[in-house]
Amino acid sequence: MHSQTSISQIHPDNYRFLQEHIYSQVGIVLEEDKHYLFESRLAPIITRLGLGTIDDLCALLKATCQPEISRQVVEAMTTNETYFFRDPAQYEAIRTVLLPRLIEERRDTKRLRFWSAAASTGQEAYSLAMRLVEAGLSDWNIQILATDFSSKVLERARSGKYQQIEVNRGLPAALLVKYFRQSGAEWQLSDQVRRMVVFETIDLRSSMRALGPFDLVFCRNVMIYFDTQTKKNILKQLHGTMFRGGWLMLGGVETAFGVEEFFERRTVGNAPVYVAR
């Protein structure tokens, strides 16, 4: 058994190799100070492969170019941590301001479209779906598109099955009781909520022309990984998928800086919201 200290060993050349590898695969820039991230995310892969250190893993990647291991490394380093109702102020803004407006504007068509653009394991899309059912919109024509570049996380998301630790975090107990049932050690989300979400593998750097138009787009905690130009291109493309006046929700430390011509920043309650111009 190797200690944590030995796993975390990483030569500067290998750090650069991993940065370049991940950038070339998914366009994500990992800064110079992410040693802890490499250590915590890659340790399970290193253990699974019977290796000793991150340097060993790099040696294997360089020597064999095994696509499966390469995919595992990229996914481990870029998977978006998520949980139910992350950033509660944003859901409160949706409940109190966006939904009443949309209900009024769309009372004839009863059609609403949402997009969770970095869906990871699905908690964001399902949180929104539960919020919509709670708002009495279960008979509306609602579709939530949930996308990620990782087909592996989407497979999990699609199953609607979560561990106890996942339903313990952020999810109001009343919604747990109402929309989940226990299945062994897992918690299974109801079909009613799962049916509202459609999952699809999408790389945010590819064309979004066929998507939308959406009333609300979540694109949280993923922009931080991209370089400035890629981020601008993605925000511009996201704008093209949205209704005028639609809301873009970014992560807590992210901004739509540099694309003010496309989005107006407003504060709704305690939540920053980017409104499509």
Partner: peptide, 30 residues
């Protein structure tokens, strides 16, 4: 107590929220 029936029973009895052990600090604060 981490069964659905227990959570429902506590909510019915007037609990405002419910945390299943084991927990993390983030879970408690949330």
């Amino acid at each position: 107590e981490a069964e659905l029936k227990h959570i429902a029973e506590a909510l019915d009895a007037g609990a405002n929220e419910y945390v299943m052990k084991p927990f993390t600090k983030d879970i408690i604060v949330g």
